[in-house]
Simulated scan of single mutants.
Amino acid sequence: MQVFTHSEFDGHETVAFCHDKASGLRAIIAIHDTRLGPALGGCRMLPYTSEAEALTDVLRLSRGMSYKNALAGLPLGGGKSVIIGDPRQDKTPALLEAFGAFVEGLNGRYITAEDSNTSPADMEIIARRTAHVRNMGFGPDDNPSPVTALGTFYGIEVGLEVLGLPMDGAKVVVEGLGKVGMDLAARLHAAGARLVVTDVNAQAVAEAVARFGAEAVAPGTAHRVQADVYAPCALGAGLNARTIPELGARMVAGAANNQLETPQDGDRLQARGVLYCPDYVVNAGGVLGIPLPGERLTMAERMARATVIQRTTRDVLDLAVERDIPTHTAADRLAQEILSGGAMRLAAE
Rank of each mutant, 00 (worst) to 15 (best):
T243V: 09
R250D: 05
D279C: 07
R250G: 15
M251T: 04
Y230E: 09
V281W: 04
P245L: 07
Y230I: 07
P263G: 13
Q259V: 02
Y276T: 08
T262L: 13
L269W: 11
Y230V: 01
D265E: 11
L235V: 13
Q264K: 15
E246N: 01
A231Q: 07
V282W: 06
Q264S: 15
M251V: 05
T243F: 03
Q259N: 08
L239K: 05
Y276W: 12
G273K: 14
G273Y: 15
N283G: 11
G238N: 08
C233H: 05
D265K: 07
Q270F: 08
G273E: 15
Y280R: 02
N257L: 09
G273W: 14
A249M: 07
E246I: 00
R250C: 06
R272M: 13
I244V: 14
G273S: 14
N258S: 03
E261Y: 05
M251D: 03
A234H: 05
L275S: 10
L260T: 01
N257Y: 06
C233Q: 06
N283Q: 11
A237Y: 02
L269M: 12
E246K: 01
Q270A: 15
Q264E: 15
A249K: 04
V274S: 10
T262W: 07
R272Y: 10
D265W: 09
A237Q: 10
I244Y: 02
G273P: 13
L275Q: 09
L235M: 13
L275F: 09
N257W: 01
L247P: 07
I244D: 01
N283S: 14
N283F: 10
P263Y: 12
G238Q: 02
A241W: 00
D267P: 03
A255Q: 02
A241T: 07
M251L: 13
N240G: 12
G273T: 15
G248N: 07
L247H: 03
A271F: 12
R242F: 04
A234E: 06
D267W: 12
P263A: 13
E246C: 00
R268N: 09
A231S: 15
A253N: 05
G248P: 04
D267I: 11
M251N: 04
A241F: 03
A253D: 11
Y230K: 08
L235C: 03
E246F: 00
P245N: 06
G254T: 01
G273Q: 13
C233A: 14
A256H: 02
G236L: 02
G236M: 03
V274N: 08
P278S: 13
Q259S: 06
V282G: 01
A241Y: 00
L260Q: 02
G273F: 14
P232F: 06
L247T: 01
N240T: 11
T243K: 06
G238E: 03
R272W: 09
A256Y: 00
P232N: 12
E261W: 02
M251I: 06
R268Q: 14
L269H: 10
